[in-house]
Write a protein that binds this DNA or RNA. Structure first.
Lengths: 158, 158
DNA sequence: CAAAATTAATTTGCGTACAATTTAATTTTG
DNA sequence: CAAAATTAAATTGTACGCAAATTAATTTTG
């Protein structure tokens, strides 16, 4: 059934190999990071995406849900329940903006601010686990940023 | 409260910046890939993880659930329902191994095998969207593989 | 200025992810 | 060889991630 070589039947198993695919490498690395962070975040009762939200808030407190979404690339459908959990855990407060009642402003509680100091330990641990020099990490980071930018800019064409 | 400089209070906002973090770059790139694949996979009624399973099966048909999990890094808790959906969609068949009834062997249907040819179109589209040369893609891929390896090998230490 | 359009969050529904438990089959070992 | 241990899938429960629908507030515009 596949004896006669079809036009591009020559490349197949080479090109389709999982290990040869950039998309799969990215997918795997993301999972590896999530798993590596998990034991470190567990003692704070945080998940990795929740940690990302806190990272964003430590940088700039008092953002709206929309703004946070733009920072970390998540929509409100994901953020709404996630933020409620962060609120329930006592790390953030959510308040309607009195100036525009449509918006919800998310701000750190004292407990949330205190966590910032401890977060350094987590970063150091992960840095060590990744086994990357700062330069190496910076290079990969830049390549990935470029990649993500290109992928999302070509999205609209479909 | 943060007037006096604590030991590592000097680095903070630099180091904690989302954009400066490798973990976030990987996380974002993974989402960017998923979003880029989505419109291409939609017409086959496939999700990205389902597509990964098919990629694995095109390479090596008739694997057990466990084996597939090892290939793409997912456990049976994720794969069981996913494979049922692939079966319902007519792309794979699931059969208990007569030699060892604990195992379930997953094999491609004709419909699943036919999809392999079309998958080339998807790969080409994504390749174009990623805007990477093969060399560039290969380099990033290798860096990420190394990274994932190091992250998961240091996992056991916690 | 009131109706229509837009916007921000929330909610709903589906599909991953993954830990932990359960079920059933196969090995190990006493 | 039967009880105990191990193994492979499936199931359960929690939390993303995202599209689509909903709700409420604010702008736009007729």
């Amino acid at each position: 059934m596949t004896t006669k070589a079809a036009p591009f039947e020559a490349i197949p198993d080479e090109a389709l190999t999982l290990g040869k695919q950039l998309c799969f490498a990215v997918y795997s690395a993301a999972h590896a990071f999530t798993r590596a962070y998990k034991p470190l975040l567990d003692r704070f009762g945080l998940t990795y995406p929740q940690y990302l939200v806190l990272l964003a808030l430590w940088q700039q407190d008092g953002m709206t849900v929309k703004r946070i979404g733009e920072e970390i690339g998540l929509d409100s459908g994901t953020l709404s329940p996630l933020l409620k959990r962060l609120e329930a855990a006592g790390y953030v407060a959510r308040l309607r903006d009195p100036g525009d009642e449509r918006q919800v402003i998310v701000s750190l509680t004292d407990k949330g601010r205190e966590l910032k100091t401890e977060a350094f330990g987590i970063l150091a641990d992960i840095g060590k686990a990744s086994g990357c020099s700062l330069e190496e990490a910076g290079e990969i980071r830049e390549s990935l940023h470029q990649l993500a930018r290109r992928l999302s800019s070509s999205e609209s064409e479909n």
